[in-house]
Each structure stands twice: as structure tokens, then as C-alpha cells.
């Protein structure tokens, strides 16, 4: 792994609702090295999907409050839809959670891909051979380009989307819960394919958003755990799984019977209590209420600091 490729600092994003702003991301900062696959885990509502979205396209309810994102040394104008457009697809791309329904149902797949490429200033003919090669890599024949989405199985559609999303070799790929709709064996195959994409240089770095820490552990180089809109721990997969520093991560991992095949989300909910509401987040450590180790100092916010080489945690007791 070479120099830093993604640098996020103090990223704060709010959701506008009629009742006020939901502080979905608060002061998020982390870095990713070139070629790194980072697993991003957390409960639903932890902000992991919001973080993924913020890096490519905020929806109309999201507001970029502060903070910067630098990709390969260049700042991404994430709060500015128009300015962000040139970066999308070419530099930052997405495999969405809804891959099965991501293709226009009334266009032949090939034609849709051509129209998308043309609209992004890429001559379809110039990437045609590469497209066919990559389809072949995921076990699809060029025939699928002449088909409508309805003629493909769910798995086939997912593979088409994986190939299409990475066709322009983005620097950063966001894979948002791509496996949540799949059965266990397919989940692993999809994850392995993404690793292979990285190895072949189809993508330079990937954020793999998932609620399933055991799946993440199989493919990710590093893991970042989020809780209530903030990262609580980041480190190599091995370090986070085998030597978690943050009590939340520890509870997550110990609640797994063994790190292996399991449905982590259910386990996450097994931790007593529930995350704080983010409409008006509490001061101090946000995990305090559920934390068995909480003490006086926890009403001050713990910084996200490097507790070991390449291992960060936000907890007063982690050091």
C-alpha cells in the first residue's frame, strides 16, 4: 500500500427533516491508502450509508455542513451537485444496494450502457472490448447486452451493475450493502469478485459498506466501525477483529458466537439499549448510555486518536 488516496476530515452532514436537522454524520475523519478495501460497519442509522452517499451523491435532503474530502490529493466538491458531476463514475463510482433494480427496465442493457457512457463523454466503442472482457470475467456472455433487465436473474443483474460501475476504473468505489439481498454463498462470491476487481486494477480503493462484520472480515484490508454518526474505531481487519479497542466494537465482536458465518445485524441489536436520537445528539461520547465502562470523563467527547500503529479509536479507555 502506497500513499494516501482518500482523506476525509471533519465531515459533517445533516438530513433536513420537518422536525429539524438530523446529525447523520458528525466530524468524521479517516484516511484510506491506495488500493485499500475498507469495510464500513455499524448498525442501521449509524451513518455508514450516509457516509457512502456523501462521497458520491447526496440526495436532496442531505446538507453538507462542513468538512473536506480529498481524493488523490484533489478536493471533492461533495456539497455541490453540479461541480461533483465530473468526478462521478470517472473517479468515484457506486454499486448500489438496489442493484437488482438499478437498470432501466425498458431499455436493452447494451443500449442503456452506451447512452450512459456517451452522456459521460466516453465513446462506447472505445470501451466495448473491455466491457465484454469484464462481463466474461464475471461469467456473463456479451449476449446480455441485447437483453432487457427482466430477462436476467437477480444475480446476473448484480454482476452487470458491478461491471458497469467499475468500467471506467474509478479511484474509489462505494459498495453499499451490495450483499444484503443475497444468500450466504453468493455473498461471498460477490465479495471475492470485488477483491479480484481491485487486484486487476479496475478500482483503486473501495469502501465496502455492510452490517455483516464477519463478511467484511473476509475481504477487507481495514475495518471502520461507526456508531451514531461517528467512527469509533478503525484499523486493519485483523487488529479490529482480534484486538478491538472500543467497547462498542468489543461488544459487537463478542456477541458473535465465532467470527464466521452469521447474521451480524441481529447480533448488533442484541446489545442492550438503543443508539441515541440524532435530531439532538447528546454531548460527550455517544455510546455512553450503553457502555459498561462509562465513567465521568465520558461526558466529554473522546477524540478519534491513533492508539496503535494504524489503529484509531474514539474512547477514553482505549489508550
Amino acid at each position: 500500500m502506497s500513499g494516501v488516496s482518500l482523506e476525509v476530515s471533519d465531515l459533517t452532514v445533516h438530513y433536513r427533516t420537518l422536525r429539524g436537522d438530523v446529525h447523520a454524520l458528525e466530524g468524521v475523519g479517516f484516511t484510506m491508502a491506495d488500493g485499500e478495501i475498507m469495510g464500513l460497519v455499524g448498525e442501521s442509522g449509524s451513518g455508514k450509508s450516509t457516509l457512502g452517499k456523501s462521497l458520491i451523491r447526496m440526495d436532496s435532503r442531505m446538507r453538507h455542513v462542513r468538512g473536506t474530502v480529498r481524493l488523490d490529493g484533489e478536493e471533492l466538491p461533495i456539497g455541490d451537485q453540479a461541480a461533483m458531476t465530473p468526478f462521478r463514475y470517472h473517479r468515484v463510482s457506486l454499486i448500489p444496494q438496489y442493484s437488482m433494480s438499478a437498470l432501466n427496465p425498458t431499455r436493452r442493457i447494451g443500449r442503456m450502457i452506451d447512452e450512459l457512457l456517451e452522456s459521460r463523454g466516453v465513446r462506447p466503442a472505445s470501451v466495448r472490448a473491455e466491457l465484454l472482457r469484464r462481463l466474461d470475467l464475471v461469467g456473463l456472455s456479451g449476449q446480455v447486452l441485447r437483453r432487457y433487465p427482466i430477462e436476467l436473474s437477480g444475480g446476473m443483474k448484480q454482476r452487470v451493475v458491478m461491471v458497469l460501475s467499475t468500467l471506467l476504473d474509478p479511484s474509489l468505489l462505494i459498495a453499499d450493502e451490495v450483499t444484503s439481498a443475497l444468500d450466504v454463498s453468493t455473498q461471498r462470491a460477490v465479495a471475492q469478485t470485488l477483491v479480484e476487481f481491485r487486484d486487476r486494477g479496475y478500482l483503486a480503493g473501495m469502501i465496502f459498506v455492510s452490517h455483516d462484520i464477519s463478511l467484511v472480515n473476509q475481504i477487507a484490508d481495514t475495518i471502520m466501525v461507526m456508531y451514531a454518526g461517528k467512527p469509533v474505531e478503525k484499523g486493519t481487519a485483523e487488529a479490529v477483529v482480534n484486538g478491538p479497542r472500543h467497547p462498542y466494537t468489543r461488544m459487537l465482536i463478542s456477541s458473535l458466537p465465532e467470527v464466521g458465518v452469521t447474521h451480524a445485524e441481529r447480533r448488533l441489536e442484541g446489545i442492550p439499549g438503543s443508539p441515541p436520537g440524532l435530531l439532538d445528539p447528546p454531548r460527550g461520547c455517544r455510546f455512553r448510555e450503553r457502555c459498561p465502562l462509562a465513567f465521568d470523563k465520558c461526558d466529554q467527547e473522546p477524540p478519534f486518536v491513533e492508539v496503535d500503529r494504524g489503529h484509531w479509536a474514539a474512547c477514553w479507555k482505549a489508550g
Binding site: A102, N104, T106
Partner: peptide
């Protein structure tokens, strides 16, 4: 608001293309 529209927008497709698809559907 359909998924295929969100996907196109995430990949930076211009509004024109997204609208054309949506209109047709």
C-alpha cells in the same frame, strides 16, 4: 425516484438522460 434513476444520477448522468428514461417509462 425509482432506483434506475438514482443509479444514473449517482453515475453522473445528465438530467436530460434521466428525464428521458423516466418520461418513457
Amino acid at each position: 425516484e425509482a432506483d434506475y434513476s438514482s443509479y444514473l444520477e449517482a453515475l453522473g448522468a445528465p438530467r436530460r438522460l434521466v428525464r428521458r428514461y423516466a418520461f418513457r417509462n
